Amino acid sequence: MITRFAPSPTGALHLGHIYAAKVAHDIAKAHCGHFHLRIDDLDTTRCRPCFTDAIYNDLRWAGLNWHGTVSFQSERHTHYAKAISQLRDMDLLYPCYLTRRELASMTQAPHGTPHGAPDIASPIVPINTDRLIPDSEQKRRAADGQQAAWRLRMDAAIKHANAHIQTHSQLNWREYALSADAGLKQATPEIFGDVIIARKDLGSSYHLAVVIDDMLDNVSLVTRGVDLQSSTHLHRLLQALLGLPTPNYLHHPLVTDSCDKRLAKRDKAQSIAALRNRGMSADTMMSILPALPDYESVGI
């Protein structure tokens, strides 16, 4: 059993992070497995070494010690580039020169997302955005040095994945949900539309990087917040396209404040360092977290 905790060093850890780390840590420990720490520092414009050091300090103080060497996304660009090239060779990626504003204007994208779609900031992009402007305009923008985002042609990608597995039902994953929603889940990646796989500014997108990372780290059980469950639909497709192993998944509840709002860095949620500096002990901090899942009850 190999689990992982993968924080981004863009701010201080809060109680929600510690809860997520403890879920992964305790499951691995219960199975005499390994709890791996990965630093998701793909966005080098926002990540800071001081936050990485703070992550180490907070986890050690909480007694959540990881196994082996810490891995960093910033050291894996070669692996991401290889996967992007593979998808290009399969004719599943296309360049998109449109800005977000242009896309919203051309497609009259609605505010928010349709039912069942992933909870992301941007509206779901329709298919074949490269056909929204003439080839001559695309060539002009390329000649002017404008960078393109590379999008997955979703309809072709799903067809390709289904053609290389015996039945459509095999595009699925095992979910150890802490509710009646557990079991074998059917992937419906079309809810993402033609999602960006290679970003203009950072190279790989989060979605591509995370499936490559989990393969490189030999992760067998991905534990993460329920807010990321919808991403698994896309991750399962990418795993099928790239020939990657599919780990099992457990999406746990989020830690929320007194108003039932999830904790977040952007809301300046109270940091672990602040709690520690006020004299709170690690045991007291753990006692105010939600009760950990009954792992045996969900078959882990």
Rank of each mutant, 00 (worst) to 15 (best):
Q146D: 13
N57H: 14
R131E: 04
K29D: 04
L132I: 05
I84C: 11
A54V: 12
H77Y: 09
S122Q: 14
Q86E: 13
Y97S: 06
T107W: 06
I120T: 14
R60A: 13
S71C: 15
P126C: 09
C50D: 14
C47N: 07
L87N: 03
F35M: 02
Q86L: 14
L59W: 01
I120C: 15
R38C: 12
M106R: 03
K29Q: 10
K29F: 04
N65Y: 02
S136Y: 09
Y94A: 02
W61R: 06
A121V: 15
Q73C: 09
M106F: 08
I127D: 14
A148S: 00
T45H: 15
S74V: 07
H67K: 04
I124S: 01
V70G: 02
A83N: 07
F35T: 05
P126D: 11
T44V: 13
A142D: 10
P118R: 00
G145A: 01
F72P: 01
H77F: 11
R140V: 11
C32V: 09
H36R: 13
A83P: 07
R46E: 02
L103E: 07
S105K: 11
Y94C: 02
T69W: 07
K82N: 05
M106Q: 08
V70Y: 10
A142E: 09
A117P: 04
Q73E: 02
D119H: 03
S105Y: 13
E137Y: 02
C47E: 08
I84Y: 10
A83E: 01
R151I: 06
R46L: 00
H36L: 13
Y94M: 03
D119T: 09
P114A: 00
R48H: 08
C47W: 10
M90H: 05
S122N: 15
F72Y: 02
L132E: 04
D58M: 01
D135R: 05
K29L: 08
A83V: 02
C32D: 11
I127W: 10
D89T: 11
L152A: 00
R76L: 06
L87P: 06
K139S: 11
H77K: 12
I84L: 12
A81V: 12
I124V: 01
H36W: 11
H79P: 15
D40T: 10
D58P: 01
L93N: 05
L92F: 00
